[in-house]
């Protein structure tokens, strides 16, 4: 099932290129804020799955082009991001140590939203395309063998990053990662039954129609169950929490004024966002790999 919020945070189910309003199912929950509502549905999905399905079957599908998607997780309890979690030199790469950081729940943006680059003096702003894992039930000290029982579903996450802000030479993830709208997530949330092998799907990101990032989750260093095991050994994960599983950094590229960005993990739909930079800063439109190749060629 593909669960979405659209327009004024109406609950919908996406079917192909159509969306069906299923908000009647949660009509008695109008006092809940959107994120509390989606967390409530996630936590009690066994109660909601059938009513949502039957509401979707009886409703009137309309084209998704007629609606504005909001992020399905507009303000998660927490966003835990894995740091350096891909085998970037191929299968023989050295396994990086497992590591992670927290990103502000207020950094979420939805499909078709705008990312305003802050005026802070970053050396560059980069896109990081990631598979997002959504937690379905409270998880503390979960072993890897049962980790998927705690997964509700998946969604696209772009972990936008401001580099070299002049912070101290130790962990500076907060000012690098937590700016408003630095976590576009969506367009909708896909339940885990629709993704047969989350460790073997393609992740792609385009800037102005040029494909920048393309990699497979098969090259993830610490797989989803290990991430859940490690994170939940430190901090309890709650329904609706998001784990951003990391990116392959080889093809990161700059984000700058008037860029149109699209990102798609196979099976999770495509999220779009626009970039605005009031300072109109410019960076060469090349990925890290392009830049390395150019520098190696001595130009």
């Amino acid at each position: 099932m593909k669960l979405a919020f659209y327009d004024d945070f109406r609950l919908g189910v996406v079917q192909g290129n159509k969306i069906v309003d299923v908000s009647e199912v949660v009509a008695n929950k109008s006092s809940l804020k959107p994120n509390d509502l989606i967390n409530h549905i996630i936590e009690n999905f066994q109660l909601y799955e059938d009513p949502i399905k039957s509401s979707a079957a009886n409703g009137d599908p309309i084209s998704i082009t007629q609606v504005k998607f909001q992020s399905p997780l507009p303000k998660p309890g927490k966003i835990v991001c894995m740091a350096i979690n891909y085998l970037e030199g191929g299968p023989d790469s050295k396994m990086p140590p497992i590591n992670g950081f927290l990103k502000s729940p207020n950094s979420v943006a939805g499909d078709d939203d705008t990312v305003n680059l802050p005026s802070a003096k970053a050396s560059i702003f980069e896109h990081e395309a990631e598979l997002g894992v959504v937690i379905g039930k409270t998880a503390s000290n979960v072993g890897r063998s049962t980790a998927y029982e705690y997964v509700f579903g998946y969604l696209n996450v772009v972990d936008i990053s401001a580099r070299d802000l002049g912070n101290p030479p130790y962990d500076s993830y907060f000012p690098i990662k937590s700016w408003s709208n630095f976590a576009p997530m969506g367009p909708y949330l896909v339940t885990k039954d629709e993704i047969s092998d989350p460790q073997n799907i393609n992740v792609k990101l385009w800037v102005n129609n040029k494909l920048n990032q393309t990699f497979s989750t098969s090259s993830m260093a610490h797989k989803i169950p290990e991430c859940i095991e490690w994170i939940s050994s430190i901090t309890t994960l709650d329904p609706g929490d998001v784990i951003a599983t990391g990116t392959n950094h080889l093809d990161l590229g700059p984000l700058q004024d008037s860029d149109n960005v699209e990102m798609e993990v196979e099976g999770l739909g495509r999220i779009h966002f626009k970039v605005i930079d009031h300072l109109k800063r410019e960076w060469p439109r090349e990925t890290r790999a392009d830049k390395a190749a150019r520098e190696a060629a001595g130009s």
């Binding site: 309890g77 927490k78 927290l102 901090t235």
Partner: peptide, 9 residues
Amino acid sequence: HAFLKSRNA
């Protein structure tokens, strides 16, 4: 400078 600490703590 700052960091985020989990609310579950």
